[in-house]
Simulated scan of single mutants.
Amino acid sequence: MAAEQEVTAWRPQVPGVVEVFHAHFTEYAYPMHVHEAWTLLIVDAGAVRYDLDRHEHGTPHDTVSLLPPHVPHNGSPATPDGFRKRVLYLDGTHLPHDLIGPAVDGPDLRDPLLRHRVGRLHTALTRAGDELEAESRLTFIGERLRTHLRRTAPVPVPRPDPVLARRLRELLDAHVVEGLTLAEAATRVQAHPAHLVRAFSGAYGIAPHQYLMSRRVDRARRLLLDGVPPGEVAAVTGFYDQSHLTRHFRKLVGVTPGRYGGRGRSAEGFRPVIGGG
């Protein structure tokens, strides 16, 4: 079967929702990457397998998956026909930072009512003028997610976060657009470059360059949904040129930037973006 990609993405006028992302992939596999936002995922057909914090997970049809921000993960089809998914990227309005640890430990929630509510929210988000309904539904979803994570949270145990790796991560976060060379980073943290890369990859399960590129792609997604042309997006998010943006964007998102940003700011003119371009 030929590879198929169908993607629809938009930013609704609903507080707390950074982006809505609907996709159907038959063969596409996400490499390791991170997001600035929480990722709330339901799968409508097929299944996805993914690694989070070096543990393998899956998305049975009756689950809701919640992936925390800044934690590397990947994703690939777990069935021959691929998967069809609906995703919400959420800021910290409903999910505070202290729930990241419990979400890492238990990202897949078996809760039919929660899954039903997330599906109803996606329906509301596709209808212009129903923003109040969507906001109300999101409030109840946030409440249920917080209850799940706080009830199942284990006794707090300090998560490994070596100082050297954390210092490099802070440097990368502070230089997402302009970037910095490995030599510059090594000088600032007073470490050998090879040791620095090894420490970062060992602590977070992702190479420093992969982390930086996924942060840049996340920023590019937001600008594209605001209607900024890909060429301008590349210039302000740290990519060398539009082709550089396209290569990394397609690798992490599954479609090209030009096919991604056609939805605009609201649910009006709802239409899928088809193909990998």
Score class of each variant (00 low, 15 high):
Pro69Trp: 01
Trp10Glu: 07
Trp38Arg: 02
Leu99Ala: 06
His116Glu: 11
Glu36Gly: 14
Thr63Ala: 08
Thr26Ile: 07
Asp91Ala: 00
Phe83Pro: 01
His244Gln: 13
Lys251Val: 04
Tyr211Arg: 14
His97Gly: 10
His70Met: 14
Leu245Val: 01
Gln5Val: 10
Val7Pro: 02
Arg49Gly: 12
Leu125Gln: 06
Phe83Arg: 07
His35Met: 09
Arg247Ile: 11
Ala207Met: 10
Ala207Tyr: 08
Leu149Ile: 08
Arg117Ala: 11
Ala165Met: 08
Arg188Cys: 05
Asp44Gln: 14
Ala220Leu: 11
Ile100Thr: 15
Gly106Val: 00
Val157Gly: 07
Ala174Gln: 15
Leu182Asp: 14
Val64Glu: 03
Glu135Ala: 15
Ala199Cys: 12
Leu171Met: 09
Ile100Phe: 11
Arg188Ser: 07
Gln13Ala: 11
Glu36Tyr: 12
Val253Ile: 14
Arg127Trp: 15
Thr59Ser: 15
Leu125Asn: 06
Ser136Ala: 12
Ser76Glu: 15
Arg84Gly: 14
Val87Phe: 02
Val14Gly: 01
Thr93Glu: 00
Asp51Met: 07
Ala134Trp: 00
Glu131His: 08
Ala194Glu: 13
Tyr211Phe: 15
Thr147Phe: 12
Val48Lys: 14
Gly82Ala: 00
Ala203Arg: 15
Leu180Tyr: 05
Thr139His: 08
Gly92Tyr: 03
Ile206Cys: 10
Thr181Ala: 13
Ala124Asp: 10
Ala124Phe: 04
Ala103Gln: 01
Ala194Ile: 14
Ser201Arg: 14
Ala153His: 07
Pro102Ser: 08
Val177Ser: 13
Thr126Met: 13
Val64Asp: 02
His57Asn: 11
Ala235Cys: 13
Val71Pro: 06
Asp51Tyr: 03
Arg49Ile: 09
Thr152Met: 06
Leu99Ile: 10
Trp38Gln: 01
Arg127Tyr: 13
Val64Trp: 02
Val64Phe: 03
Leu41Ile: 11
Glu6Ser: 08
Ala9Ile: 03
Leu223Thr: 04
Gly101His: 09
His61Asn: 10
Glu143Asp: 15
Pro69Ile: 02
Thr59Phe: 07
Asp98Leu: 15
Arg11Val: 05
Asp105Tyr: 03
Val34Asn: 03
Leu109Trp: 09
Val87Ser: 04
Pro96Cys: 04
His195Ala: 13
Pro160Phe: 06
Val233Pro: 00
Ile274Asp: 11
Leu114Cys: 02
Val87Glu: 06
Gly277Trp: 15
Glu268Ser: 15
Phe200Ile: 05
Gly231Asp: 06
His244Thr: 12
Glu178Met: 13
Val217Asn: 00
Leu245Thr: 00
His33Gln: 12
Gly101Arg: 13
Leu132Met: 12
Ser266Asp: 15
Asp108Cys: 08
Gly101Pro: 09
Arg54Phe: 12
